[in-house]
Design a binder for these strands. Sequence first.
DNA 1: GATGAATGAGGCTTCATTCAT
DNA 2: TATGAATGAAGCCTCATTCAT
Lengths: 208, 208, 208, 208
Amino acid sequence: MADPNRRRTEKRDLITEAAVDVFAEKGFHQARVSDIARRAGVADGTIYLYFKNKEDLLLSIFEEKMDVLLDGMREALEGVDDPVERVRRFARHHFRQVRENRSAAEVLQVELRLSNKFLKEYRPEKLWAYLNIFANIVRDGQASGVFRPDIDPFIAMWGFFGGLDEIAMQWVLARNQQRIQLEEAARQVAEIYIRGMLTNTQTTSEEP
Amino acid sequence: MADPNRRRTEKRDLITEAAVDVFAEKGFHQARVSDIARRAGVADGTIYLYFKNKEDLLLSIFEEKMDVLLDGMREALEGVDDPVERVRRFARHHFRQVRENRSAAEVLQVELRLSNKFLKEYRPEKLWAYLNIFANIVRDGQASGVFRPDIDPFIAMWGFFGGLDEIAMQWVLARNQQRIQLEEAARQVAEIYIRGMLTNTQTTSEEP
Amino acid sequence: MADPNRRRTEKRDLITEAAVDVFAEKGFHQARVSDIARRAGVADGTIYLYFKNKEDLLLSIFEEKMDVLLDGMREALEGVDDPVERVRRFARHHFRQVRENRSAAEVLQVELRLSNKFLKEYRPEKLWAYLNIFANIVRDGQASGVFRPDIDPFIAMWGFFGGLDEIAMQWVLARNQQRIQLEEAARQVAEIYIRGMLTNTQTTSEEP
Amino acid sequence: MADPNRRRTEKRDLITEAAVDVFAEKGFHQARVSDIARRAGVADGTIYLYFKNKEDLLLSIFEEKMDVLLDGMREALEGVDDPVERVRRFARHHFRQVRENRSAAEVLQVELRLSNKFLKEYRPEKLWAYLNIFANIVRDGQASGVFRPDIDPFIAMWGFFGGLDEIAMQWVLARNQQRIQLEEAARQVAEIYIRGMLTNTQTTSEEP
DNA sequence: GATGAATGAGGCTTCATTCAT
DNA sequence: TATGAATGAAGCCTCATTCAT
């Protein structure tokens, strides 16, 4: 295919992938644009044909990766209606993504926090969409009487996500990554939140 | 009091407090050393009489603030033996500290994550000591049969702390800080974890 | 000629020449990198595309100028076999170079001595090669019985070079450079060393 | 003696000696005033009670050391009338001073060249007085018909001193100082100059 | 579109010097 | 006379970004 749009896309992807790796390795501030260019096999200036500036590159990575995460999470929850089971799957799938794409996870978790612009000016809509999936699970569970009605879905959402995120960060930072079993961590956090949110009359049968 | 040691300490404290404010406002990288000096009312060079360099200033703030947090948390838990009540107090006190010292919280939570050195080389012993307080509450609860024995205190610790931390960060970042009621958030996260960790035979009486 | 290598070389040379002038005028420590950049008509940063740092610029000048000096001296001695005449030519050519390239001489003689790195760590191979030309003249003269065998070529070399160097420095430093006639100085130092090193049976016929 | 002037002098000497050592070790620019103060066992500010500034300290050392050198040289030549023998003694005594006071020699030879002010503005009268001793030996020799009248005492002086100086510098810089035998070097340079300057009818009997 | 040489603003840090005690 | 904490000017270097080719 000699479609110029195709080629344009290819070069853009080269840069994106290189940037993920370099940001993950060195961190956003330590990463030099020329490092990314070299790794992508393009000239420094080429990056500015596809991205406004270094920060735009970081945010673009975030947007693109979050699209993948969002789609993946929606697919993972597809056909599962039980709120309890949806909580389990959410945690399990989140960590699976982290493990399958360590560099991207590192960039998303560690480096994005570094950008003041990101934190204070940029509104991460995609992240909210991702988190809202969880908030809606809680709301659905409350509607069907499974979860206690006095739980604030907003607080539960941040608390749950913060927990997953912190564990993922420890895993990413750990030199010896055997130390944290992501599957087991997913199961435990999910069970704590499930039991913690269940109405008193409910009883959980542990997942098999 | 013309004690020279006293004066020395005073100047150092001036710098520390100024640095907390400036780092919180502008972020570590955006903060210029001369900004800090001006706010502290000292010359630029004076900062280097007390701190090795800009990063050392950041890490020193971390150490000093964590000492305060550690002492405060130990005091807040003093005399409380019931693990369940200790979990509640941990969450409540953590958020209280965040709210009473917004700038310091901002630096600790947001800016420290930005330093590669902090995350990858510096071992934040003080943070671990802080977190271990929670892990030990879990262990104590397990020993007394209140909390389920299959809970991994390590995972619970990171999950719980990550949740508190994320909520605190949202509060710090929120322009309108009414939106998140820290007391209520503390109560909810604590209750979720408590119920989530209780053995099946236990029942909680909600705190009054 | 649109040869990019040509242009690259041109810019490097611009910087080198500017640096020679500025170092000669102000001295190494007093010379600011921005002075050199301005004189070369380039941006400050451009200098760092060609040189690692300010000191590397100084050492590069040394290497490049010594190459020229070495070639020039070899050429000046070409075809002259008589050790006595070679000594004369060495002195004469050395001072000719000094006068034709006053700034470079100033940098080489005055400023290089200022760099601890140069004196204590850097091994000036090129300078030794230059000096060895003289030591070999002495050795040749000893082999052919013209110069006394008890002369240590090493001591003669340093003594001779030191003498030329000191006279050149006085000439460089003198505000009124008429005061020292370099040609006459060359002749006198050469004659002293020649007579001083001749075996007793020899007689010199003064050069015409 | 509780004479305050005595004490004043003592402290000044402490500083001078410390400065000689530190300048010799680290070089003028690398030497910090506080290094000198610490080595002298005084406060930084105390140095400024005795010296105008860092450069004045360097120049004062030069003046003081040159006084000693001058007196020493005059004494060493006292009672010796033969110009030939005076040349020998000059070289021998110069190197003896260098060896007996290595740090001072290092400062005088290496570091003084580094100060633009010294080289371009400061007129080293004492150095000239020292050198003039040699120029006068040449003049005396010419007056008594021992040295050739066409020798320019000025050129001979710089050439001779430059040679001694360069050899001394190589000795100072040499890690293994056995490599250069200063006594032998003194003898050789002196003999070269003596024979080189003698009138044709003269013959030297080598020194015993 | 692609290149990469060139740009130049910007800030951390050092250290000689001062001065209140 | 002595101190030493405080000062603050000054400059090397980096690196994101541009633009002529």
